[in-house]
Design a protein around this nucleic acid. Structure first.
Lengths: 118, 118
DNA sequence: TTTCGTTATACCTGTTGAGGTATAACGAAA
DNA sequence: TTTCGTTATACCTCAACAGGTATAACGAAA
């Protein structure tokens, strides 16, 4: 064992999000929710896939749509299937934006954790 | 106004910390607390300077000392002045480690926020 | 052995927010 | 015009947590 003694394993950790003046707009969970809505075309099914209540999913979406100028999710109710939800082009842009940001962040965490052989 | 229309101001945001298997060890607030303890040599005065209760400061210190193998803060009670607290060499190392990590993180946030002219 | 300011710890309480449940609204299709 | 599954929203409850207050422990100095 060279310079480093027997060591307590340390990790660089953190959470990131994109915010407006109103506060948090999208983070990891909300982006995943958008991706599930895109996949299923349904808020309810997206919520089930993430093991969260419909209520919570709806609140997150409502908050996003309120804070962003343009809705990230558009939903309709009634009709065939009872209703549906789709992710807008704006929503897609946020997904891409966050995932790019997050990728760089994860690289930083990994790099810093390396330095923690301490 | 070139490629970007009138825009909603977005910011890359986040929080970071250093964690062990037991969870969070030090973040921004705890590092600041260590710095204040170093400055004042007193848990109570450090807490006052940060406008937190002595109780909360003590709990944070206790948690850090428990999770780290080596105490980050050593305190004595009784005697001249009623007691005192000092930051150990290990504590100083965590301060330096976190501040370095945080500096790179702040750079990432600033850089990403640039890309959010979106 | 009394004083004093700090460290250490127990205890109690209000708040807030996470979460579930219930129900209304809706519109296409049969 | 009835059915159906989903969206939308109101309402209620309970636990966890933040935070304050009170008090014990401590030891150097006077």
């Amino acid at each position: 064992m060279p310079a480093s003694k027997k060591k307590l394993p340390l990790a660089a950790d953190g959470r990131i999000w994109i915010s407006t003046a109103e506060g948090k707009l999208v983070g990891k969970g909300r982006i995943e929710l958008l991706e599930k809505i895109k996949q299923y075309g349904s808020i309810r099914q997206a919520a089930m896939a993430m093991e969260m209540s419909y209520r919570q999913a709806w609140q997150l979406i409502d908050d996003m749509n309120t804070k962003a100028q343009t809705p990230l999710v558009i939903s309709t109710r009634g009709g065939k299937g009872g209703g549906n939800a789709t992710v807008t082009e704006k929503g897609e842009q946020y997904i891409a934006l966050f995932n790019s940001f997050n990728k760089k962040f994860q690289q930083l965490l990994a790099q810093q954790t390396q330095h923690f052989i301490f």
